[in-house]
Amino acid sequence: MSTLVLLLVTGVGLGALYFLVASGLSLIYGLMGVLNFAHGSFLTLGAYAGWEVSRRMSDGSWLSLVLSLVVGAAVGALVAIATELLLIRRLYERHVEQVLVTVGLALATVALFDGIWGTDAVYVSGPAWLDETSGVLGAQIPHDRFLLIGVAVAVLLGIVAFLRFTRFGLVIRAGVENRSMVTALGIDVRMAFTVVFAIGGAAAGIGGVLASQYFGYVSPQLGASLLIFAFIVTVIGGLGSLLGAAIASLAVAVLQQLANFYASGTGDLVVVLLLAAVLLVRPSGLMGARA
């Protein structure tokens, strides 16, 4: 029982990380039809930026963690905005080229991270509280899980509120449904492109800082390894659906944890099998409107 609780909470925590990556991917794809391969690099860069902050503060305080998160989000957002303005926008409506450009960017940036921070992982520490545990239903749950879940929920609520209550949010929701009609109402939808890239980049940057807390390190490959699961999550959830991404993140991560524990480390394979099963039954994903 206590093992199960631990696995479930850990799964939800991991799901929170997947969601932070997948939410941006899904929004960007939903609005622009762009698959952003460089999204993992936004995450990695956010993680390194957060590490640089906490290294300079070197006190393991909450202030340092909060500052890391803020800086990680800001760096992620800025790089994402630059990507959209300098690379994606030039290739407006040429979806294959847009994917290719982000592939090139992903290759180049991972190599650059190698060069700057070295191929070896750098170790990250946070407030001591995160390493402690608390008893929940008989299980000893490490506190970092709560941090992941809390921040991801906050980000989810923040994005939902943004989409619901701002004009940009309105434009984005409408654009996901029918982009050309948005322009036919006199709205320059490209502004919304930059905004979703910024949101996605910020979420990824936050995800990077959290991932480095959770795993205890940052490496140039950090983003890429999470990105693959985020891709799986977005396809299972339904491309373009934020809610689908949230549900699929949880399902995938929990399943992965359970399979890793009860079926001798087969978590990654089970997740891919789940993907195949979903595609066979429902090619458009759980919440996807279009096939």
Binding site: L87, L100, G104, A106, L107, A108, V110, A111, L112, G115
Partner: peptide
């Protein structure tokens, strides 16, 4: 890989 990625872009 940085040079190749950049060249590719």
């Amino acid at each position: 890989l940085f040079l190749l990625g950049t060249l590719f872009v």
